[in-house]
Design a protein around this nucleic acid. Structure first.
Lengths: 354, 354
DNA sequence: TTGTAAGCGTTATCAA
DNA sequence: TTGATAACGCTTACAA
């Protein structure tokens, strides 16, 4: 990396205008290697198509010059940026942070970059960001959930690139989908509690975005088969989810729904808050109150008592989304465009009664 | 937005080559408004410098055409991308997720975009990503911590754009710095425990990145003044931090350091794990063991007993970093290039003895 | 397999 | 204040 010594090859110094960035360009590499610029371009994109002799000379020149390709010039010339636009509703929600981690890991050594947008759970903001992203002609797009606005959906349908809806599955994919059923998760957690003998099972929910709504719907469905339902058992808030919100909602629930003997929570933060509040009030878990969370964050298994939860494959969702995009970009679009990664009910001490 | 109807103005259809993306360009806007392209460009960048009459015609044309500026072309022509490169060590660590949130919020309506890189706590990966970022000629760079490799530091010093080191402060800023002292945090938490009467205070640490090391150093320093130190009190692991790791480290600590009566934890996840383990083993908190965490995540105040922690201004660090960058980009570089945002010891039940 | 010429859509330069 | 022209660094189209 003799950047200082000869970043500017002799034959180019004179030509270099004041506008130049001063960094070596493809042309610099080409002239140093004694080949045409297009050959260097090809050597970079598809080494197979360049003779091994030239390839070696080019590689040497690149190393000597410390050359780095200018992605803006590439994007401009090819009318296509090596960028995947990712729209997710929250950064601080651990669940989406793990999706993002899966996406990054899925990228591996590919040249693709992630352009990330935080919609703050707003469909309007999602559409606004999408328009910005589209201006860059991204290679692919990832959006969260399946409840896009009609106009957003139209934009995505005509985006001219692979689109993956993540975290949920449903009937009408825009293009591809990777996720799991939130309805089933809510239902299964509730059925499990009914099975172990709970009768007055509350539902605690915060934020209540579309996925939360479907978990709630699943909870209601579980009662239709077995239990006796009471609207007072449901306690929700549009406010963001947090551990303290879990404690707060539980206080509300227990005061308005007499005989409460279990709570199905919208997510793990709420569940942890419920556990703490039970500890504080001296309410025994699981003897008097059973608790179930959603997502199965790492802490659930360690809590005392350990907390039952629905394990969701969020990291895998990110990886799978990228895998499908890379396949589509490589020309072989996956046959299965709707991938349901499922979930797993992790039964722990908080719903285990002797 | 009559995109469908006349996205391609009549006078441009014939000229448009097959390479074109099909989207309206600056030239399309210009010809529709009856002005030169450069005038449209100016109207976009600095409306003040264009007469109000032309500005109106241009705005009308932009709306009619549904024009969106091509950032790649802009970056290529100006040799400068409206991108801020952000290098942080982890995505799933809640602390950095909040820094990122602060950064995003600090951006507000500015045209700046974030390009994010995950170093996975590796200095080599940091340098590799930095080289990639530098290829895009970013408007500014944000890096985590103050322990860059010498070569990384040199790259940053010659990057030719504002650079902010975040999450820590120290003596030799590359350019600017926003953070707080981890040494002081570790020291203050430990001194607090010594004050309330603990004598055998353990230190639990995971990951042990440079910031963790300095917290540990602060912990040691607290003993120098008051307590009697014993190397057996320190239990660390290079493995990532987690709640279960907290429980695990505590089991180790209590078995090797007889008489342990308090633990200062590297972060809140570990502290929560300690609390759960104490619950599990029937060890009373704070009567027999006092606990302190680090960062003061939201759950700490809700836990039962509530957990003492060092409140760190991570969201504010992100906002402040962007504020300093925007100021520098606007031409008035902050006078104070090292900003120490401080921290606050939050004393709670886990270190409150009657 | 390699090269030439002509863009890609914007902005810097210089002139009017 | 406005505009014509030439970059910016790369890739597509076409030719050899």
């Amino acid at each position: 990396m003799q950047l200082a010594g000869n970043a500017r090859p002799g034959d180019a110094v004179g030509n270099r205008s004041r506008r130049s960035s001063g960094r070596p360009t493809l042309a610099d590499v080409a002239s140093r290697a004694g080949v045409g610029t297009i050959t260097v371009s090809r050597a970079l994109r598809d080494p197979e198509r360049v003779s091994s002799e030239l390839r070696e000379r080019i590689d040497a020149a690149i190393t000597a010059l410390g050359y780095v390709l200018n992605p803006n010039a590439r994007a401009l010339a090819s009318a296509r940026a090596d960028v995947i636009g990712v729209l997710i509703p929250s950064l601080t929600n651990n669940v989406f942070a793990e999706v993002l981690r899966g996406i990054h890991d899925g990228l591996g050594d590919s040249a693709l970059q992630i352009q990330f947008g935080n919609t703050h759970y707003s469909a309007d903001e999602e559409e606004r960001l999408l328009r910005v992203f589209l201006g860059q002609r991204p290679s692919a797009l990832i959006v969260s959930g399946i409840d896009q606005l009609p106009a957003t959906r139209r934009l995505l349908e005509t985006a001219g690139c692979p689109v993956v809806q993540i975290m949920e599955t449903g009937p009408n994919p825009i293009d591809m989908m990777v996720g799991f059923s939130h309805f089933d998760g809510g239902q299964q957690a509730t059925e499990h509690m009914l099975q172990i003998g709970c009768r007055r099972i509350g539902f605690l929910g915060a934020r209540m975005d579309p996925r939360s709504q479907r978990r709630l719907a699943g909870y209601r469905a579980a009662f239709r088969a077995t239990g006796v339902f009471d609207e007072l058992l449901v306690t929700t808030t549009p406010s963001p989810s947090s551990v303290s919100m879990g404690a707060y909602l539980f206080r509300q629930a227990i005061s308005k729904a007499p005989g409460l003997d279990g709570v199905v929570c919208n997510n793990d933060d709420l569940a942890l808050g419920v556990l703490f509040e039970c500890n504080r009030q001296g309410i025994s878990v699981p003897d008097r109150i059973c608790i179930a969370g959603y997502n199965d964050l790492e802490m659930m298994a360690v809590a005392y008592p350990s907390l039952t939860s629905i394990r969701t494959p969020r990291y895998e969702v990110g990886r799978q989304a990228i895998a499908m995009i890379r396949a589509a970009l490589a020309g072989d679009r996956p046959e299965q465009v709707i991938v349901d990664l499922g979930f797993e009910l992790k039964v722990r001490e908080s719903t285990t009664r002797q």
